[in-house]
Design a protein around this nucleic acid. Structure first.
Lengths: 194, 194
DNA sequence: GAATAAAATTGACGTAGGTCAAAAAAAATG
DNA sequence: CATTTTTTTTGACCTACGTCAATTTTATTC
């Protein structure tokens, strides 16, 4: 399972096989059953999680008890309560497995060691943070500038592999709309096509 | 003016005075007049911008011609079309000075050299990317979970120094509401207090 | 594979926040 | 400092999307 991570890392930095081995060995493989939580509010998130198999969803529950999806992750994506992880303070998010899954987890302290020890490893974490930031900027801009329907269409085009694997109610709340409204958008589309 | 940057950097990494000098010397000081643009759609953003004096606003214009504010920056903040800068492809945002301002600009190629040359500099850029990502996560979560009025109240509390310096129409669009609606929120509050 | 639970759909109705246009206030400019 | 431009406010009306409740469909479990 660790090959996936090796390949992923190789997209961003060039490592010798020893370096690559060292990095990947720092991760622990864990199996997570569907519906199992890996993060919960008030518990500090201790690892960075790389999905090698399965799917996850992170979400927050507001004062009215409504769930709002913050992120999805499938193979080759990271998922965490990032604020909790980097500042090592209590989480505000739930993260739950949507399928039986396998994660590679990197411990917070272990990550600090890796970054301190190696300039290349530091570069790797800098790059994934920058890419993450650029991604979230695009998301914020798109959300500010588009209607519910356009946001859904855009999600279909941008993340076709996610659509089949995440429940509608989770997708609706990720896109900032009610599950009923998303259902109507989908239905309208289906009618238009027939 | 460069002391501000020196102090800023010192919050995240410990540098010798030579290192500090080298980093800060890599930035160019530029004066920007109010209403002047430093980034425009279709032009690639060539620098990372650190505000030492003044205020800026980045925004996108949608298909209906409406402006949506993406970010504000005052002293000690960075501002850029981050997607344009890190991928060196054409920008989609406008960035304009809200006041007569002074920037420290770091050229893209110069930044790459700095990161390649020094592990510490690499760490610095990693940290600011991670902090930026954590910030945007908090923003996305807050926006998903709160009403227009709550978003305004939160902005007042979180960024009191910005409030006096940014126009209402820009703030309204940053918070994802119309300028008229923001005006009503403010007015309601004022009445409540009297 | 029947029973139960979870997710998605549908209809009726409600509301947060938008739009348009005009007026007032504030800021910029010569 | 009077004029022009930009920004904010106000009122009347509108709509995209939400809520609630009931039903249907799909998944899960024993």
């Amino acid at each position: 399972m660790k090959n996936l991570l090796t390949d992923y890392v190789a997209k961003f930095i060039t490592l010798t096989s020893e370096e690559s081995e060292e990095l990947v060995k720092s991760f622990n493989e864990v199996k997570i059953k569907k519906k199992q939580f890996i993060t919960q509010p008030n518990f500090t998130s201790r690892h960075r999680n790389f999905v090698v198999k399965g799917a996850f969803r992170s979400y927050v529950v507001d004062d009215k008890g409504q769930e709002h999806t913050v992120q999805f992750a499938i193979e080759n994506w990271w998922i965490s309560d990032f604020n909790s992880f980097i500042y090592q303070h209590p989480a505000t998010l739930f993260i739950v497995a949507l399928e039986d899954s396998t994660l590679l987890q990197l411990d917070y302290e272990k990550e600090q060691e890796l970054k301190k020890k190696s300039h290349k490893f530091e570069t790797f974490f800098r790059i994934i943070a920058e890419k993450g930031l650029a991604f979230e900027h695009r998301r914020i801009i798109f959300n500010l500038t588009h209607s519910a329907e356009a946001r859904y269409e855009n999600f279909l085009l941008s993340f076709p592999h996610f659509v089949q694997r995440v429940p509608q109610y989770a997708l609706a709340s990720y896109l900032g709309m009610s599950v009923e409204f998303l259902s109507r958008i989908r239905n309208k589309k289906a009618i238009r096509k027939s």
